Amino acid sequence: MEANATVALWIQYLILQVLSVTRLASSFGSDVDTWIAQYGMTRLGATAATTVETFISLSPTSTSAVVPVGAVVKTSDGTISFTVTEDTDNQYWSATAGGYVRAQGVSSITCPIECNTTGSVGNVSAGVINLLGTQISGIDTCTNLSAVSNGSDEETDSAVKSRMVLWFSSLSSATLDAVEASISGVASNLTYQVIQNETPDGLYRAGYFFATIDDGSGDVPDTTLTSVESAIEATRACGVETSTVRATVIAAVIVVPVSLAAGVELASVQTAVSSAITAYINALTVGGVCQYTTISSIALQSAGSLVTSVGVVTVNGVVADIGGSTGTVVRVTSVTVNDTDA
Rank of each mutant, 00 (worst) to 15 (best):
residue 1 M to N: 06
residue 2 E to L: 13
residue 11 I to R: 04
residue 16 L to H: 09
residue 17 Q to T: 01
residue 18 V to H: 14
residue 21 V to C: 06
residue 21 V to F: 08
residue 25 A to M: 13
residue 31 D to V: 01
residue 32 V to R: 00
residue 36 I to V: 05
residue 36 I to W: 05
residue 37 A to C: 05
residue 43 R to C: 06
residue 47 T to P: 11
residue 54 T to Q: 11
residue 54 T to W: 05
residue 62 S to A: 09
residue 63 T to R: 15
residue 64 S to C: 04
residue 66 V to R: 12
residue 68 P to W: 13
residue 74 K to Y: 00
residue 74 K to M: 12
residue 76 S to Y: 10
residue 76 S to R: 13
residue 84 V to D: 10
residue 86 E to A: 11
residue 88 T to G: 14
residue 92 Y to V: 13
residue 92 Y to T: 11
residue 97 A to S: 15
residue 104 Q to K: 15
residue 105 G to R: 01
residue 107 S to H: 13
residue 108 S to T: 15
residue 110 T to E: 14
residue 111 C to K: 09
residue 114 E to T: 15
residue 116 N to E: 09
residue 119 G to I: 00
residue 121 V to S: 15
residue 124 V to M: 05
residue 130 N to I: 14
residue 132 L to M: 10
residue 132 L to N: 02
residue 136 I to G: 07
residue 137 S to E: 11
residue 138 G to W: 00
residue 139 I to Y: 10
residue 140 D to H: 10
residue 143 T to H: 10
residue 143 T to Q: 06
residue 145 L to N: 15
residue 146 S to Q: 13
residue 148 V to E: 12
residue 148 V to P: 02
residue 149 S to M: 02
residue 150 N to R: 08
residue 154 E to Y: 04
residue 160 V to K: 04
residue 162 S to Y: 06
residue 167 W to S: 02
residue 168 F to L: 14
residue 169 S to R: 11
residue 170 S to W: 04
residue 171 L to C: 15
residue 172 S to R: 13
residue 180 E to S: 14
residue 182 S to H: 02
residue 190 L to W: 07
residue 190 L to C: 09
residue 190 L to D: 03
residue 190 L to Q: 05
residue 192 Y to H: 10
residue 192 Y to K: 14
residue 192 Y to N: 11
residue 193 Q to S: 00
residue 208 Y to T: 00
residue 208 Y to V: 08
residue 209 F to R: 00
residue 213 I to R: 11
residue 216 G to F: 00
residue 224 T to S: 03
residue 226 T to D: 14
residue 226 T to Q: 12
residue 228 V to I: 07
residue 228 V to K: 11
residue 229 E to I: 03
residue 232 I to N: 02
residue 234 A to T: 01
residue 236 R to T: 07
residue 238 C to Q: 12
residue 242 T to I: 08
residue 248 T to Q: 06
residue 248 T to G: 00
residue 250 I to L: 12
residue 256 V to Y: 04
residue 257 P to S: 00
residue 259 S to R: 05
residue 260 L to I: 04
residue 261 A to F: 03
residue 266 L to M: 03
residue 269 V to K: 13
residue 269 V to P: 08
residue 271 T to M: 06
residue 276 A to P: 04
residue 276 A to E: 10
residue 281 I to S: 07
residue 285 T to N: 14
residue 285 T to H: 07
residue 286 V to H: 05
residue 288 G to D: 11
residue 289 V to M: 01
residue 289 V to A: 09
residue 292 Y to Q: 06
residue 295 I to P: 08
residue 300 L to P: 01
residue 300 L to A: 13
residue 300 L to K: 12
residue 304 G to H: 12
residue 308 T to I: 11
residue 308 T to R: 03
residue 309 S to P: 00
residue 312 V to W: 02
residue 313 V to P: 04
residue 318 V to M: 04
residue 318 V to K: 09
residue 322 I to K: 05
residue 326 T to L: 07
residue 332 V to E: 10
residue 334 S to W: 10
residue 339 D to H: 00
residue 340 T to D: 10
